[in-house]
């Protein structure tokens, strides 16, 4: 129980040091629990030497990288996305709004706008690509 509490306290107190770019939250929490357990076991055995878990695993805590994870630092607010979205060319905006906000199928959008399905797909793709670039440049 003490270990759970210590781990959770650490997670809480150091949460602002967590860098999602460098790893997933679960791995981060695992490394904190692992380190606490290591230090507790050493303490229980009355080890006086000042070697502690941070000496053994510092870099790994910082470097755990998971490329699939969305970085919290890079999260963009809804307002910002709205502004970026509004800056898209009218035709792309229309298609993306219909598909991603109204939830229509690409075929429905094609029928409504009387344009070929291929055009709907390419407008959506180009628009999203552009948004993605804007989000990336926003850092």
């Amino acid at each position: 129980m003490e270990m759970v509490q210590d781990t959770m306290s650490n997670v809480w107190q150091k949460s602002h040091l967590f860098n999602a770019e460098k790893g997933s939250p679960s791995t981060w929490i695992f490394t904190i629990a692992r380190n606490i357990r290591f230090d507790m076991l050493r303490k229980q055995r009355n080890r006086k030497e000042d070697l502690c878990s941070d000496d053994l695993w510092p870099i790994l805590c910082e470097q755990t990288a998971d490329v699939n994870e969305v970085s919290l630092d890079h999260q963009v607010s809804m307002d910002e996305i709205e502004t970026m979205f509004q800056s898209l060319p009218e035709k792309q905006k229309l298609v993306i709004e219909a598909i991603y906000i109204d939830g229509k199928s690409q075929q429905e959008v094609a029928d409504e706008l009387s344009i070929p399905l291929g055009t709907v797909k390419s407008r959506a793709r180009l628009g999203l690509q552009r948004l993605k670039e804007m989000v990336k440049d926003d850092d």
């Binding site: 790893g23 679960s26 692992r34 790994l60 990288a65």
Partner: peptide, 26 residues
């Protein structure tokens, strides 16, 4: 730990092992 400081390959291995262990844990 000292070897891992010097060895990018083992750094990467440890990162992957930790992610695995974390997955099991959670």
């Amino acid at each position: 730990s000292a070897h891992v400081d010097m060895c990018p390959q083992c750094q990467q291995d440890c990162i992957e092992i930790q992610a695995e262990l974390a997955k099991e844990l959670f």
